[in-house]
Protein backbone atom coordinates (compact mmCIF):
# COMPACT_ATOMS: atom_id res chain seq x y z
CA UNK A 1 0.00 0.00 0.00
CA UNK A 2 2.62 2.49 1.05
CA UNK A 3 5.24 2.50 -1.67
CA UNK A 4 7.56 4.80 0.24
CA UNK A 5 7.37 2.59 3.30
CA UNK A 6 8.23 -0.45 1.19
CA UNK A 7 11.18 1.32 -0.44
CA UNK A 8 12.65 2.09 2.93
CA UNK A 9 12.45 -1.54 3.93
CA UNK A 10 14.14 -2.98 0.84
CA UNK A 11 17.92 -2.82 0.55
CA UNK A 12 18.70 -0.09 -1.96
CA UNK A 13 21.26 0.02 -4.71
CA UNK A 14 23.18 2.49 -2.59
CA UNK A 15 23.46 0.17 0.36
CA UNK A 16 24.80 -2.60 -1.87
CA UNK A 17 27.31 -0.23 -3.42
CA UNK A 18 28.29 0.96 0.00
CA UNK A 19 29.01 -2.52 1.25
CA UNK A 20 30.96 -3.43 -1.88
CA UNK A 21 32.95 -0.19 -1.83
CA UNK A 22 33.83 -0.55 1.78
CA UNK A 23 35.09 -4.06 1.27
CA UNK A 24 36.99 -3.12 -1.85
CA UNK A 25 38.82 -0.30 -0.13
CA UNK A 26 39.49 -2.43 2.91
CA UNK A 27 40.99 -5.03 0.61
CA UNK A 28 43.39 -2.44 -0.78
CA UNK A 29 44.43 -1.34 2.67
CA UNK A 30 44.73 -4.94 3.78
CA UNK A 31 47.00 -5.77 0.87
CA UNK A 32 49.44 -3.06 1.96
CA UNK A 33 49.47 -4.48 5.47
CA UNK A 34 50.05 -7.97 4.11
CA UNK A 35 53.01 -6.67 2.12
CA UNK A 36 54.51 -5.16 5.27
CA UNK A 37 54.05 -8.39 7.19
CA UNK A 38 55.45 -10.39 4.27
CA UNK A 39 58.55 -8.21 4.10
CA UNK A 40 59.24 -8.80 7.74
CA UNK A 41 58.41 -12.49 7.49
CA UNK A 42 60.55 -13.21 4.47
CA UNK A 43 63.58 -11.26 5.52
CA UNK A 44 63.50 -12.48 9.10
CA UNK A 45 63.16 -16.07 7.92
CA UNK A 46 66.06 -15.72 5.49
CA UNK A 47 68.13 -13.67 7.88
CA UNK A 48 67.94 -16.20 10.67
CA UNK A 49 69.32 -19.05 8.54
CA UNK A 50 72.87 -17.94 9.30
CA UNK A 51 72.26 -18.71 12.95
CA UNK A 52 70.00 -21.73 12.63
CA UNK A 53 71.29 -23.57 9.56
CA UNK A 54 74.87 -22.37 9.43
CA UNK A 55 75.39 -22.37 13.21
CA UNK A 56 77.03 -18.97 13.43
CA UNK A 57 76.70 -17.53 16.90
CA UNK A 58 74.97 -14.17 17.14
CA UNK A 59 77.79 -12.61 19.12
CA UNK A 60 80.39 -13.77 16.58
CA UNK A 61 78.22 -12.32 13.84
CA UNK A 62 77.83 -8.96 15.50
CA UNK A 63 81.36 -8.58 16.84
CA UNK A 64 83.50 -10.56 14.41
CA UNK A 65 85.69 -8.46 12.18
CA UNK A 66 86.45 -11.06 9.52
CA UNK A 67 83.97 -11.19 6.68
CA UNK A 68 84.78 -14.10 4.45
CA UNK A 69 81.63 -16.17 4.09
CA UNK A 70 83.14 -18.65 1.65
CA UNK A 71 85.73 -19.72 4.21
CA UNK A 72 84.66 -21.98 7.04
CA UNK A 73 86.33 -22.01 10.38
CA UNK A 74 85.49 -24.62 13.05
CA UNK A 75 82.27 -25.63 11.32
CA UNK A 76 80.81 -22.19 10.71
CA UNK A 77 81.49 -19.67 7.94
CA UNK A 78 83.59 -16.63 8.78
CA UNK A 79 80.94 -13.96 8.95
CA UNK A 80 81.92 -11.17 11.25
CA UNK A 81 79.63 -8.31 10.27
CA UNK A 82 81.20 -5.68 12.48
CA UNK A 83 83.06 -3.92 9.64
CA UNK A 84 79.83 -3.24 7.79
CA UNK A 85 77.88 -2.40 10.91
CA UNK A 86 80.59 0.00 11.97
CA UNK A 87 80.78 1.44 8.47
CA UNK A 88 77.04 2.04 8.33
CA UNK A 89 76.91 3.69 11.73
CA UNK A 90 80.00 5.76 11.16
CA UNK A 91 78.87 7.09 7.82
CA UNK A 92 75.36 7.77 9.13
CA UNK A 93 76.53 9.63 12.19
CA UNK A 94 79.15 11.67 10.34
CA UNK A 95 76.81 12.64 7.51
CA UNK A 96 73.99 13.58 9.88
CA UNK A 97 76.28 15.49 12.20
CA UNK A 98 77.61 17.45 9.26
CA UNK A 99 74.09 18.11 8.00
CA UNK A 100 72.56 19.27 11.28
CA UNK A 101 74.06 22.79 11.41
CA UNK A 102 73.35 23.35 7.73
CA UNK A 103 69.80 22.04 8.07
CA UNK A 104 68.97 24.12 11.14
CA UNK A 105 70.63 27.20 9.67
CA UNK A 106 68.78 26.88 6.40
CA UNK A 107 65.51 26.21 8.18
CA UNK A 108 65.99 29.29 10.38
CA UNK A 109 66.55 31.40 7.30
CA UNK A 110 63.20 30.18 6.00
CA UNK A 111 61.25 30.71 9.20
CA UNK A 112 62.85 33.50 11.20
CA UNK A 113 65.51 35.48 9.39
CA UNK A 114 64.08 36.19 5.95
CA UNK A 115 60.88 34.15 5.80
CA UNK A 116 59.72 35.58 2.46
CA UNK A 117 62.83 35.59 0.29
CA UNK A 118 64.35 32.72 2.26
CA UNK A 119 61.43 30.47 1.49
CA UNK A 120 61.10 31.65 -2.08
CA UNK A 121 64.70 30.71 -2.82
CA UNK A 122 65.36 27.84 -0.46
CA UNK A 123 62.11 25.90 -0.82
CA UNK A 124 62.73 25.06 -4.51
CA UNK A 125 66.36 24.35 -3.71
CA UNK A 126 65.31 21.76 -1.15
CA UNK A 127 62.71 20.26 -3.46
CA UNK A 128 65.28 19.90 -6.21
CA UNK A 129 67.81 18.32 -3.87
CA UNK A 130 65.20 15.79 -2.73
CA UNK A 131 64.22 15.09 -6.31
CA UNK A 132 67.69 14.17 -7.53
CA UNK A 133 67.88 10.37 -7.78
CA UNK A 134 70.41 8.65 -5.57
CA UNK A 135 72.38 7.15 -8.45
CA UNK A 136 73.01 10.67 -9.66
CA UNK A 137 74.41 11.55 -6.25
CA UNK A 138 76.52 8.43 -6.48
CA UNK A 139 77.76 9.37 -9.92
CA UNK A 140 78.67 12.91 -8.87
CA UNK A 141 80.33 11.48 -5.78
CA UNK A 142 82.33 9.13 -7.94
CA UNK A 143 83.44 11.76 -10.43
CA UNK A 144 83.91 14.74 -8.11
CA UNK A 145 84.19 13.76 -4.46
CA UNK A 146 86.31 10.63 -4.80
CA UNK A 147 89.00 12.29 -6.97
CA UNK A 148 89.03 15.26 -4.61
CA UNK A 149 89.64 12.98 -1.65
CA UNK A 150 92.33 11.20 -3.62
CA UNK A 151 94.08 14.50 -4.27
CA UNK A 152 93.87 15.67 -0.69
CA UNK A 153 94.46 12.49 1.29
CA UNK A 154 96.13 10.23 -1.22
CA UNK A 155 95.09 6.61 -1.60
CA UNK A 156 92.16 5.65 -3.77
CA UNK A 157 89.80 8.34 -2.58
CA UNK A 158 87.11 5.77 -1.85
CA UNK A 159 86.03 5.48 1.75
CA UNK A 160 83.84 6.63 4.60
CA UNK A 161 84.66 10.28 4.09
CA UNK A 162 83.53 10.30 0.46
CA UNK A 163 80.36 8.53 1.51
CA UNK A 164 79.85 11.08 4.26
CA UNK A 165 79.96 13.98 1.84
CA UNK A 166 77.56 12.34 -0.57
CA UNK A 167 75.10 11.39 2.17
CA UNK A 168 75.40 14.83 3.73
CA UNK A 169 73.86 16.39 0.65
CA UNK A 170 71.26 13.64 0.44
CA UNK A 171 69.95 13.95 4.00
CA UNK A 172 70.22 17.72 4.12
CA UNK A 173 66.86 18.45 2.44
CA UNK A 174 65.07 15.81 4.53
CA UNK A 175 66.29 17.23 7.82
CA UNK A 176 65.83 20.82 6.69
CA UNK A 177 62.25 20.57 5.55
CA UNK A 178 61.22 18.68 8.67
CA UNK A 179 63.03 21.24 10.81
CA UNK A 180 61.13 23.98 9.02
CA UNK A 181 57.89 22.22 10.01
CA UNK A 182 59.07 22.03 13.60
CA UNK A 183 60.04 25.71 13.66
CA UNK A 184 56.83 26.94 12.09
CA UNK A 185 54.82 25.03 14.65
CA UNK A 186 56.32 27.20 17.37
CA UNK A 187 53.61 29.81 17.98
CA UNK A 188 54.33 33.31 16.68
CA UNK A 189 53.35 34.68 20.09
CA UNK A 190 56.43 33.05 21.66
CA UNK A 191 58.62 35.03 19.30
CA UNK A 192 56.76 38.29 19.84
CA UNK A 193 56.86 37.84 23.59
CA UNK A 194 60.60 37.30 23.54
CA UNK A 195 61.29 40.19 21.18
CA UNK A 196 59.03 42.42 23.24
CA UNK A 197 61.14 41.65 26.29
CA UNK A 198 64.07 43.15 24.43
CA UNK A 199 65.77 39.97 23.31
CA UNK A 200 67.68 40.13 20.03
CA UNK A 201 66.57 37.94 17.15
CA UNK A 202 69.35 35.48 17.81
CA UNK A 203 68.51 35.30 21.52
CA UNK A 204 64.91 34.66 20.59
CA UNK A 205 65.90 31.96 18.14
CA UNK A 206 68.35 30.34 20.46
CA UNK A 207 66.48 30.57 23.76
CA UNK A 208 62.88 30.32 22.63
CA UNK A 209 62.38 29.02 19.11
CA UNK A 210 64.99 26.26 19.03
CA UNK A 211 64.16 25.21 22.59
CA UNK A 212 60.49 24.72 21.98
CA UNK A 213 61.09 23.09 18.60
CA UNK A 214 63.59 20.60 20.00
CA UNK A 215 61.39 17.47 19.79
CA UNK A 216 60.50 18.28 16.20
CA UNK A 217 64.12 18.92 15.29
CA UNK A 218 65.16 15.65 16.92
CA UNK A 219 62.55 13.85 14.87
CA UNK A 220 63.95 15.49 11.77
CA UNK A 221 67.44 14.33 12.67
CA UNK A 222 66.34 10.75 13.27
CA UNK A 223 64.52 10.79 9.94
CA UNK A 224 67.71 11.96 8.30
CA UNK A 225 69.68 9.21 10.02
CA UNK A 226 67.19 6.61 8.87
CA UNK A 227 67.54 7.82 5.31
CA UNK A 228 71.34 7.81 5.55
CA UNK A 229 71.47 4.36 7.11
CA UNK A 230 69.31 2.82 4.42
CA UNK A 231 70.82 4.54 1.39
CA UNK A 232 72.43 1.95 -0.81
CA UNK A 233 73.66 2.82 -4.27
CA UNK A 234 75.06 6.29 -3.75
CA UNK A 235 77.12 5.03 -0.84
CA UNK A 236 78.11 1.82 -2.53
CA UNK A 237 79.51 3.78 -5.46
CA UNK A 238 81.94 5.82 -3.35
CA UNK A 239 82.73 3.83 -0.24
CA UNK A 240 85.16 1.36 -1.79
CA UNK A 241 83.41 -1.84 -0.78
CA UNK A 242 86.26 -3.41 1.17
CA UNK A 243 84.87 -5.48 4.00
CA UNK A 244 87.48 -4.22 6.41
CA UNK A 245 87.16 -2.45 9.72
CA UNK A 246 87.02 1.28 8.94
CA UNK A 247 90.19 2.30 10.75
CA UNK A 248 90.67 5.24 8.43
CA UNK A 249 88.06 7.56 7.00
CA UNK A 250 89.87 7.72 3.69
CA UNK A 251 90.49 4.01 3.14
CA UNK A 252 88.04 1.73 1.31
CA UNK A 253 85.38 0.43 3.65
CA UNK A 254 81.85 -0.88 3.34
CA UNK A 255 78.37 -0.55 4.76
CA UNK A 256 75.52 -3.01 5.21
CA UNK A 257 73.80 -1.70 2.12
CA UNK A 258 76.90 -1.66 -0.04
CA UNK A 259 77.75 -5.27 0.70
CA UNK A 260 74.15 -6.27 0.06
CA UNK A 261 73.95 -4.57 -3.31
CA UNK A 262 77.18 -6.04 -4.54
CA UNK A 263 76.76 -9.42 -2.92
CA UNK A 264 73.26 -10.76 -3.52
CA UNK A 265 73.84 -11.20 -7.24
CA UNK A 266 77.15 -13.01 -6.77
CA UNK A 267 76.00 -15.70 -4.36
CA UNK A 268 73.70 -18.68 -4.74
CA UNK A 269 70.49 -18.85 -2.75
CA UNK A 270 70.68 -21.21 0.17
CA UNK A 271 74.45 -21.13 0.58
CA UNK A 272 76.12 -19.84 3.71
CA UNK A 273 77.49 -16.84 1.77
CA UNK A 274 73.99 -15.94 0.72
CA UNK A 275 72.46 -16.53 4.16
CA UNK A 276 74.99 -14.17 5.68
CA UNK A 277 73.85 -11.41 3.33
CA UNK A 278 70.24 -11.90 4.35
CA UNK A 279 71.33 -11.51 7.94
CA UNK A 280 72.73 -8.12 6.99
CA UNK A 281 69.39 -7.28 5.43
CA UNK A 282 67.73 -8.28 8.68
CA UNK A 283 69.97 -5.85 10.56
CA UNK A 284 68.93 -3.12 8.14
CA UNK A 285 65.30 -3.96 8.75
CA UNK A 286 65.71 -3.92 12.51
CA UNK A 287 67.54 -0.60 12.36
CA UNK A 288 64.77 0.85 10.23
CA UNK A 289 62.29 -0.26 12.89
CA UNK A 290 64.47 1.21 15.60
CA UNK A 291 64.56 4.60 13.91
CA UNK A 292 60.79 4.45 13.61
CA UNK A 293 60.45 3.61 17.25
CA UNK A 294 62.75 6.47 18.20
CA UNK A 295 60.61 8.88 16.20
CA UNK A 296 57.49 7.68 17.99
CA UNK A 297 59.15 7.98 21.37
CA UNK A 298 60.27 11.53 20.65
CA UNK A 299 56.81 12.43 19.42
CA UNK A 300 55.18 11.01 22.55
CA UNK A 301 57.64 12.77 24.81
CA UNK A 302 57.04 16.01 22.98
CA UNK A 303 53.28 15.74 23.29
CA UNK A 304 53.47 14.79 26.96
CA UNK A 305 55.35 17.96 27.76
CA UNK A 306 52.59 20.15 26.40
Amino acid sequence: MDKIRASILTPSRSSKLERRGKWLSLLCLGSICIVVIAIFGFITYRGLATFTTDHVSLSKFLTGTDWNPSVSKSGAPLVGALPMIAGSFLITILATALAIPFAIGTALMMTDVTPKTGTRILQPVLELLVGIPSVVYGFVGLTVVVPAMRNIFGGSGFGILSGTFVLFVMVLPTITSMTVDALTSVPKSFRYASLALGATRWQTIYKVVLRSATPGILTAIVFGMARAFGEALAVQMVVGNATLMPYSLVAPASTLTSVLTTGIGNTVMGTAQNDALWSLALILLIMSLTFNLAIHLIANRGSLKR
Binding site: I37, I39, G230, S288
Partner: peptide, 20 residues
Protein backbone atom coordinates in the same frame (compact mmCIF):
# COMPACT_ATOMS: atom_id res chain seq x y z
CA UNK B 1 52.16 2.62 11.81
CA UNK B 2 52.65 -0.23 9.37
CA UNK B 3 52.32 2.11 6.41
CA UNK B 4 54.72 4.51 8.05
CA UNK B 5 57.22 1.70 8.55
CA UNK B 6 56.85 0.66 4.94
CA UNK B 7 57.48 4.22 3.79
CA UNK B 8 60.66 4.44 5.81
CA UNK B 9 62.10 1.07 4.73
CA UNK B 10 65.32 1.46 2.76
CA UNK B 11 64.56 0.88 -0.89
CA UNK B 12 67.26 -1.77 -1.07
CA UNK B 13 65.26 -3.79 1.46
CA UNK B 14 62.19 -3.42 -0.73
CA UNK B 15 64.24 -4.60 -3.67
CA UNK B 16 65.50 -7.62 -1.75
CA UNK B 17 61.99 -8.49 -0.69
CA UNK B 18 60.88 -8.17 -4.30
CA UNK B 19 63.70 -10.48 -5.28
CA UNK B 20 62.66 -13.10 -2.70
Amino acid sequence: TMIEILSSLPSVVVGLFGFL
